[in-house]
Each structure stands twice: as structure tokens, then as C-alpha cells.
């Protein structure tokens, strides 16, 4: 049986009318843009978890577990990079996340791509490359994209 329920909108009753103040929105965006969280140790933690997941899976490179573990860490890196002043990490990670999400599996080649990505990300963090306009970031992202495109073309 399907029931359609119209819940009482207590949230609306509590907040009233008027929306968000433009000034509040501006301040909220400034809080994002100017936060001083040090992303490097956070990113290194996630990259370490990627390495560990690969090591723990040994030769079983096509497991569902490995796929999920890799994607978990990659999604966090993609999400948090730009939030914590490292859009370079978000942009490079996005390429790998996009590949994994489109496949729903991993194999030896994917693991190699993820390992190459991990090295690229470590290089960006080591050199404190934050901007996506930095030539190093551009070059690494371009290389990753090329490898991912080749893999996709091979599979299709």
C-alpha cells in the first residue's frame, strides 16, 4: 500500500519568512574561501589509506571491496581539496573518480592508474601546488586524463 503523507512543515513555522540575508551568504562564502585548515596532512591520510587498501588486497585487484575503498578515499579527496584551498587536488582527483564511477569495478590497470594518481597528488602536495592554473597541475591532470581516456577507449 502506498500512502502519501503531507508532513507538517515545522521547519517553516520555526524560521518564518524572508530567506537568507545577502550579507550572510557573502560572509558564509568568505568563511569557505578564507579557511586556514592545513589540508596536507588530511590529504596524506587519505592517500595513505589508498595505498593500504591496494596492499591489503594483494593480488585480488578486482574485488568489490577494493573498488569501494578506493572510491571512498578518492571522493573525500575530491570533496575536501577545494574546500581546503587545494583545487589542484580536486581537479586531478575528479578525473579518477569519474573513471571509477563509470566502471563500477577495478582491475590491474585501474590500480596502476590510481597509483599514478597518488604519486601525482603527493607531488602537488609536496610542492604546495594549489592552483589549477599552475603548469605542474595542468600537466599532471592532462596526463591522467589521457591515460583514463585510453583506458575507456580500450574497454568500449
Amino acid at each position: 500500500m502506498n500512502m502519501i503523507i503531507k508532513p507538517k512543515n515545522t521547519l517553516k513555522e520555526k524560521v518564518g519568512d524572508g530567506g537568507f540575508r545577502a550579507e550572510s551568504l557573502k560572509k558564509a562564502q568568505t568563511a569557505i574561501d578564507e579557511n586556514d585548515v592545513d589540508f596536507v596532512p588530511i590529504a596524506k591520510k587519505y592517500l595513505g589509506l589508498i595505498n593500504r587498501a591496494i596492499e591489503d588486497n594483494g593480488d585480488n585487484k578486482n574485488s568489490k571491496k577494493l573498488y569501494s575503498e578506493l572510491l571512498d578515499q578518492l571522493m573525500q579527496l575530491r570533496a575536501q581539496g577545494s574546500m581546503f584551498n587545494y583545487p589542484s587536488i580536486t581537479v586531478t582527483t575528479d578525473i579518477v573518480v569519474d573513471l571509477l564511477e563509470s566502471l563500477n569495478m577495478v582491475d590491474d590497470t585501474i590500480v596502476e592508474i590510481v597509483q599514478a594518481y597518488e604519486k601525482s597528488a603527493m607531488a602537488l602536495l609536496g610542492a604546495k601546488v594549489k592552483s589549477v592554473d599552475n603548469p605542474v597541475c595542468k600537466a599532471l591532470a592532462s596526463e591522467l586524463q589521457t591515460v583514463c581516456n585510453k583506458y575507456k577507449a580500450k574497454r568500449s
Partner: peptide, 27 residues
């Protein structure tokens, strides 16, 4: 989707305040 802009969060909060959808309850 993260990373997000403040406005994107505000838009979603506004939607749940102003345009809550009816609920479906089924098995």
C-alpha cells in the same frame, strides 16, 4: 556535491523550508 559554495547549501536549505515534498510510505 562537495566542494560546495555557500549559496548552494543555502539553496538546498531554502528548498526544504519552502518546498517540502509530500512523503511516500510504502513497503
Amino acid at each position: 556535491v562537495k566542494p560546495f559554495a555557500a549559496e548552494s547549501l543555502a539553496i538546498r536549505i531554502t528548498r526544504v523550508i519552502e518546498n517540502p515534498r509530500d512523503f511516500v510510505v510504502s513497503d
